[in-house]
Design a protein around this nucleic acid. Sequence first.
DNA 1: CAAGAGATCATCT
DNA 2: GATGATCTCTTGA
Length: 205
Amino acid sequence: MFLKREFFKRKTELVARDLLGKFLVRKIGRNILAGMVVETEAYVGPHDLACHASKGRTKRTEVMFGPAGVWYVYMIYGMYYCLNIVTEEKEYPSAILIRALEPSFIPSLQSTPRTLTQGRGKRGGLLSNSANGPGKLCKAFQIDKNFNCTSAVTKKSKLYFEDRGIKIPKNKIIKTKRIGVEYSGQWKNRPLRFYIKGNRFISKP
DNA sequence: CAAGAGATCATCT
DNA sequence: GATGATCTCTTGA
């Protein structure tokens, strides 16, 4: 089943944790790519100095002040895109960065199974290094600025989440500090990064 | 292995 | 004009 707005309209930390084990699904023409979310980071509001919205309401951050279940995609370092899903109530700017996916086959396709091999070289097969980072997963899933401000919770969306019945037990979830936010003062050490313990598709231990 | 540099541009000052 | 929610490649121990 596909995740609706209600799922995202909750405390960001909770959503970030619950997103582990869910599947990101991307439709490209007749093809479908999917991957299980194995790593996320929460950016939890206007006082979170690592959250872009802490700098105020600007053209770029506007989307985070809107309703939950909308994509926030931005370019970073002039080279990569980062995919985020907006959470919580309107007017409360918060989002979750999707940091890594475990590539998967799509059992429902009876034709040749597709794997996540679009992003980088190498021949077919499950690549452990094609979606293990926010920039790389966007490349692999062909996600760019066109998705910014679009909804993830309408049926016609070409990018959305599914619950396929996988539950990650609490003792399998690691909670630690976020990556690349050294500038954010006290917030840099807050445990707002979540990943599945022992999973080999995460971006960093 | 770890550490450092460079690529490259949208966004904000 | 500076900087970054990144990644890959190079260097050196």
